[in-house]
Amino acid sequence: MEKKKELGLYIHIPFCERKCYYCDFLSAAADRGTKAAYVDALIKEINSYRYLKEDYRISTIFIGGGTPSTLMDGELVRIMEAVKDVFQIEDRFLSDEKTVNGLPKEDFIEATIEVNPGTVSREKLLRLKAAGLNRISMGLQSADNKDLKLLGRIHTYETFLDTYKAAREAGFQNINIDLMSALPWQSLQDWMEVLEKVISLRPEHISAYSLIIEEGTPFYEKYSEVSFDDELDRAMYWSTAERLKAAGYGHYEISNYAFENRECRHNIAYWIRKNYLGVGLGAASLIENKRFHKEEDLKKYLQQAGSTDSLSIDTELLDRKQQMEEFMFLGLRLMRGISTKEFQELFGSNIESVYRIPIEQSVREGLLSEENGQLFLTAKGIDLSNTVMARFLL
Rank of each mutant, 00 (worst) to 15 (best):
E6V: 04
N134H: 07
G248R: 13
A82Q: 05
R262T: 13
A166D: 10
M80K: 08
E326C: 08
A167M: 07
E221R: 06
N267M: 09
L394H: 12
S312W: 02
R333N: 07
E97K: 15
D190N: 15
H293I: 01
D55K: 14
I357S: 12
G280I: 04
C16S: 06
L334T: 08
L298F: 01
R135M: 09
K105Q: 15
K300D: 10
D55Y: 09
Q344V: 06
Y220Q: 04
A131K: 01
M236F: 12
N116M: 01
K321H: 01
L195H: 06
N275D: 15
G248V: 01
E316F: 07
I46A: 06
I206G: 10
G132E: 00
I61A: 02
Y157T: 09
A30M: 00
F228C: 05
Y301V: 07
E352Q: 06
K35T: 00
R243I: 10
M80E: 13
R50T: 11
R135P: 07
V194K: 01
E17L: 11
T240P: 02
Q303D: 10
L133M: 13
H266F: 07
Y237V: 08
S187C: 02
E326S: 09
G280A: 11
K245L: 09
D73A: 15
G65K: 07
I382Q: 14
